[in-house]
């Protein structure tokens, strides 16, 4: 198993996380994914990359530098995205019960390992 796959598995093992994936940031395509339940992986990749791109530009404009963690919370779940270098994003989707603190740490750890 590759390092990336291993890292994605660790993220998926966090309570409440429905799946994790590695996404190509410029084109919004799935590079590698792990146990994505009930959600279209292609949709996650495209939407997460699009949101991350827009936020990268906004953060740059605000003088905040590059985003390191992005967290979109909805009524019933959360999307987490962490840039890994210039070209990749580590993305996870979790339900309302997700341990977000732990998931965030696992994503950052995975991004460090991949970048």
């Amino acid at each position: 198993m590759s390092g990336a796959e291993h890292a994605l598995r660790r993220i998926s093992a966090v309570r409440g996380v429905r799946g994790a994936m590695l996404v190509s940031a410029p084109d919004g395509l799935v590079v590698s994914e792990s146990s994505m339940e009930d959600v279209d992986g292609r949709a996650i990749a495209a939407l997460a990359a699009s949101l991350a791109g827009r936020l990268r530009r906004a953060a740059g404009g605000a003088g905040l530098g590059r985003p390191t963690v992005i967290q979109l919370r909805g009524e019933t779940g959360t999307l987490l995205a962490v840039p890994a270098g210039e070209e990749l994003l580590v993305v996870a989707v979790g339900d309302r019960e997700t341990n977000l603190g732990l998931a965030r740490l696992e994503l950052l750890e995975a991004a460090r390992g991949i970048a």
Binding site: V23, S24, P26, D27, G28, A45, A46, L47, A49, S50
Partner: peptide
């Protein structure tokens, strides 16, 4: 301003 992923989706 878009991407392959968004366009395909």
């Amino acid at each position: 301003e878009s991407s392959v992923g968004i366009v395909q989706l």
